[in-house]
């Protein structure tokens, strides 16, 4: 079923919208959530929460890319859940590997007011960074840092070795760091 037909069902308050969403995107959403939470039960709950949020968001929202729209929701819901469950226990937040890699984008002498970057400008800068990348690099970056895909999977899909993928991602992080500094976010 096409995305626009499912979105029409949401707008018509037809409960089949959720059934059809689950058929088309259920596995992607559970898998994204599982990559953050490492728990099938929690991933299932977060996926259901995502359907509820999508139900409440439409109307007014009319997403062109329904998969991307739902992925953003499930990622946020799952990260919130992870933080809630783990921050006190572990003193950090996950998915730890991806965040640890991203610390390379933060210079040691970074200066930020209130210890945070300006959110909207940060998002704009990430999109600016992505727009300047060739597609084969962009898909690696987005899959790693949005979809939380394992390096081994990226290597398998791209035909590169795992070492190659790590080197490519390292260079991309360096480029992002330069851009963040140039845009005076850090």
């Amino acid at each position: 079923m096409e995305d626009c037909q499912i979105v029409d069902q949401y707008w018509a308050r037809d409960e089949k919208a959720i059934e059809n969403t689950d058929k088309k995107y259920g596995r992607l959403l559970r898998s994204l959530s599982f990559s953050v939470l490492s728990s099938h039960e929690d991933a299932e709950e977060c996926t259901n929460d995502t359907y509820l949020e999508a139900w409440n968001a439409m109307p007014d929202a009319r997403p062109t890319f329904l998969g991307a729209f739902l992925s953003k929701i499930v990622r946020r819901v799952s990260i919130d859940r992870y933080r809630h469950d783990h921050r006190q226990k572990r003193g950090g937040f996950g998915p730890d590997a991806a965040v640890e890699e991203l610390t390379e984008c933060i210079p040691d002498d970074a200066e930020t007011p209130d210890g945070l970057m300006e959110n909207q400008r940060l998002r704009d800068t990430i999109n600016l960074f992505l727009s300047g990348l060739p597609e084969d690099r962009r898909v690696l970056f987005v899959n790693r840092y949005f979809y939380n895909a394992p390096i081994a999977e990226l290597a398998g899909r791209s035909g590169y070795t795992e070492t190659n993928v790590k080197v490519i991602l390292h260079r991309l992080r360096e480029q992002l760091r330069s851009l963040l500094e140039k845009e005076e976010l850090l």
Partner: peptide, 27 residues
């Protein structure tokens, strides 16, 4: 530094839908 990296990780939510769709299709 970790806090800023977390913020950067969070900000990936702002990635344009067309890039998310492109990455999902690639997989």
């Amino acid at each position: 530094k970790t806090r800023l990296a977390e913020q950067l990780f969070d900000a990936m939510d702002g990635i344009d839908d067309k890039y998310l769709d492109e990455a999902a299709r690639w997989r």
